[in-house]
């Protein structure tokens, strides 16, 4: 007679660290009782005030993305080393803790971590741009789905590789993405075509920009339209990242260096 616990106990046997994703206060308290194993908390905010904490900008849809991001963040803070075996406890189906994965920490960074931490723009600015795109994707413009394109960072070069489609409503204004009023403004301005240009520090430089990068050799998945092509191409030509809300399938996608890095469904948030 074998208990299920015993059958799978080697999943958490000899781990170098335990990663708790979005734990409650009491859960974290319990986990800190583990004396041998360091506990790393992964969340958008450090609500449990853990010593070892990795901030994630968004709750990624993809569970692998989520774990990878946490591991890379922890490696950066030197909480774990490449080669360590760690266990990640997270919630896959509901809000309750329902899965444990055993992962080996790998060397180097992959796309999503790189997108947030190694871009020209501040991670907070990129996160705010995502928030706006997700918000826009959820609500749309007066109930109709809208598309939008945010080009974040390296604004000087982006402006030089684009031209205005209409007068710039953000001229001589000093609003930053993440300001409460901005969501409303961006929603209104998303009615017209063209890209929003956002600087490294989050200042909204312009709306209604027609991007003119050379799209030669930019390879984006088939089926995506001109907006995504422009987004991919501008990130290859400049140091910007592009966040696109698709009008047809209402997904939010992020491009960097000409590649599609991340795909999110706004309905999940």
């Amino acid at each position: 007679m074998v208990e299920p616990c015993a059958l799978f106990e080697d999943i958490v046997a000899d781990i170098d660290a335990l990663f708790l994703f979005s734990p409650t206060g009491s859960e974290y308290e319990d986990a800190t009782e583990l004396e041998e194993t360091p506990v790393v908390v992964v969340d958008t905010d450090n609500t449990v005030e853990a010593d070892k904490f990795v901030a994630v900008p968004l709750e990624f849809d993809d569970i692998e993305d989520r774990i990878r991001f946490a591991l890379e963040g922890a490696t950066e803070q030197e909480l774990v080393e490449p080669g360590d075996q760690v266990a990640a406890a997270l919630s896959l189906f509901g809000d309750d803790r329902d899965m444990i994965a055993r992962v080996r920490v790998r060397d180097g960074t992959h796309g999503i971590y790189d997108l947030f931490t190694d871009s020209r723009a501040d991670p907070a600015v990129i996160r705010d741009a995502f928030d706006v795109a997700i918000e826009l994707g959820k609500k749309g413009q007066k109930g109709k789905p809208v598309g939008a394109l945010f080009v974040v960072g390296d604004a000087g070069n982006v402006m030089n590789k684009s031209r205005p489609l209409s007068y710039n409503p953000f001229e001589k204004s000093h609003v930053h993405v993440g300001d409460p009023i901005v969501n409303v403004m961006l929603k209104e301005f998303s009615r017209l075509d063209g890209a929003f240009v956002i600087s490294d520090s989050g200042k909204i430089v312009s709306a209604y920009r027609y991007l003119e990068p050379s799209a030669e050799g930019v390879d984006i998945p088939k089926g995506l339209g001109a907006r995504h092509m422009a987004a991919g191409a501008i990130t290859r030509d400049t140091g910007a990242v592009a966040i696109v809300l698709s009008e047809s399938d209402a997904l939010v996608r992020a491009f960097k260096g000409g590649d599609l890095i991340l795909e999110l469904d706004p309905e999940e948030y």
Binding site: D154, A155, G156, N157, V158, M159, N160, E171, K172, V197, S199, D200, S201, K203, V205
Partner: peptide
């Protein structure tokens, strides 16, 4: 806003594109 982000300016002996 005598110059804005994206303009090419020279200040003293430095020349470049305004980024911020």
């Amino acid at each position: 806003e005598p110059f804005s982000i994206g303009d090419r300016v020279a200040i003293g002996n430095r020349e470049g594109v305004v980024q911020e």
